[in-house]
Structure formats: C-alpha cells, structure tokens
C-alpha cells in the first residue's frame, strides 16, 4: 500500500495539499470507528463492574478452563475451514485461470456474496433440515467453508491468472514435466495469493458467531459466541479481554502468515488485500 502511495504521489507534486485534504474524511472515520472503539475496549478490559481499575478480568479469563477450550475449538475450526477452503479453492482457481472463460466463471463463485450472508446461512440451514442432516459441527464447518470460499478463490484466481505464461513455457522448454512445472513455477509464484486467501479466511472464521449459532442451533459455542454472550450479559470487562485476545490472535496469525510469505521469496508476487 505504501509503495503504491509513493508511486502515485511522486509525479504530481502540485496537488499535494489537496490530496491530503481528501484523506481527512477517511482519517476521521478511522479515528471514530476504529481507534476510539479499540481504546474503549482496552479501557474496559481493566475496569470491573464498579468502574475501578483491576486486573481481575485477565485472571477470570485465563483461569477459566471453558473459555480456553472454546478458544481452542475456534482456532481448530478456523484451521480446518481454511485448509478445506485451500484444498477446494486452489485446484479450482488453477483450472479457472487456465480457461479462457475463467473470469466469467469466477463471477459465479462471487455471485453468492451479493446475497447477505445471514440470509444465505439461514437458507443453508433450511436445506440441511429439509434433507434431514443433523445440525452440528459438520454443518457449521460446511457453512464456514461455503461462506468464506469466495475469499479464498478470488485472490488465488487473481494471482494465478496474472502469472506470466512465459515462465511456464520456459520451465517446459527446460524439460520439466507438468508436475514439476506446477511445483517449481506456478506454486511459488502463487504464494502471495495463498497467503492473502488464508488471511482472508482464517481471521474471520475464528471470530464468527452467527454461522456457528445458526447452523448448530446454538450447540456449537465458539469464541465469537462467547464474546457476544459476555457483552449481552453486561460482563464488559471479560468481554473486552476476550476481544483483545481475539485481536492478538489476528495480529499473531497475520504476522506468521506474512513471515511465511516473505521467507518463501514473495518478492515476485504482490500483496492483494
């Protein structure tokens, strides 16, 4: 993002001031709706119900076995959903990127996103009930994969279809067979897409609450559900701690994913999201 910004700002120096003015609404928006809520959560985390400073909320959370189990469940569901999305999404994007009509076909995967995800989830639930599938962990993971698959396919497709064909041709000229071409050329070149996809899927899945609630009749209780319940019951302190823990996980996973990306020579690819 910064690289792009510099690239744009260099040639037209005259309008520098105007441009900065244009960014003010966004900065204001970020302040109001991102920074201030975060600060409020941070403050709440250290307050008890009588608004006095305390660290009890941390103790409450980290000594409560059930909260930690719920967190582990959420992380596992997140990992599984992301893995399934990748296993389904990568071959699909690969095939689509090779097809001339791929761009149009990708639209079909994006199309469902135009319908509100709650409506889609409720519809999924109705289908499961109609075909007598018992609601539970299986249906929750299905719902997650169904909802987040487009977020995996889109970056993958963009990366894969933007790979220069000449790299592949060069590899073939040098005698690589199709699997070697894939492993040594296509896969490394698409790592940026994989990373964007994983980020786009894993981070939302560990924090969802609506999908798990609806598709399991509330029997699967994930971290997002727990946070929602804490806030609903007026336990703002613990709820804030849990939000912070969630935030920490998002940051850590982002960091790890990015690290992994840089390590495997990401310099060829571009960051997509």
């Amino acid at each position: 993002m910064t690289a792009a910004a510099i690239a744009v700002s260099k040639p037209k120096r005259k309008f520098k001031l105007t441009k900065r003015v244009f960014s003010y609404p966004y900065v204001l928006f970020m302040l109001l709706f991102v920074v201030i809520p975060l600060v409020m959560i941070l403050v709440n985390a250290f307050l008890d119900s009588d608004n006095t400073l305390t660290l009890d909320n941390f103790a409450d959370f980290f000594t409560d076995k059930s909260s930690l189990i719920i967190l582990a469940n959420s992380l596992l569901v997140g990992v599984i959903t992301t893995a399934i999305c990748l296993i389904i999404g990568y071959p699909l994007s690969y095939i689509l990127s090779k097809m001339p009509s791929g761009r149009v076909l990708v639209l079909f995967y994006v199309l469902p996103m135009w319908v509100n995800f709650l409506i889609r989830t409720l519809a999924t639930k109705a289908i499961f009930i109609a075909i007598d599938v018992p609601l539970g962990m299986g249906t929750v993971i299905f719902g997650m994969v169904y909802n987040y698959l487009p977020f995996m396919i889109l970056p993958l497709h963009t990366t894969l279809s933007s790979i220069d064909r000449s790299y592949i041709e060069a590899a073939q000229d040098l005698g690589a067979d199709s699997s070697t071409v894939f492993l040594k050329t296509v896969l490394p070149l698409s790592v940026s897409g994989i990373i964007s996809g994983i980020t786009m899927v894993f981070i939302p899945t560990i924090s969802t609450f609506a999908i798990s609630q609806l598709l399991s009749n509330g029997k699967i209780f994930l971290f997002g559900d727990s946070i929602q319940m804490k806030f609903e019951q007026g336990l703002y302190g613990v709820g804030s701690i849990m939000s912070l823990v969630m935030l920490a996980f998002v940051l850590v996973s982002n960091f790890i994913i990015n690290r992994a990306g840089r390590k495997s020579g990401l310099s060829v690819g571009r960051s997509l999201w």
Partner: peptide
C-alpha cells in the same frame, strides 16, 4: 450474575474439544 453466566457458558459449550474436530483435522 457472572457466576451464573459462566455456568451457562460451560453447560452450552460442553466439555473439551469435540472429537469430530480432531478427526476432521486428521483427515485433512
């Protein structure tokens, strides 16, 4: 209130990580 809410959360979440999750991970 907090004790009752926590009780309700534990009851709703059930004990431990469901075996199906481990199987799922194993399958992947």
């Amino acid at each position: 209130n907090e004790a009752v809410v926590n009780m309700w959360q534990r009851a709703k979440a059930g004990g431990g990580v469901p075996a199906s999750l481990w199987w799922c991970l194993f399958a992947i």
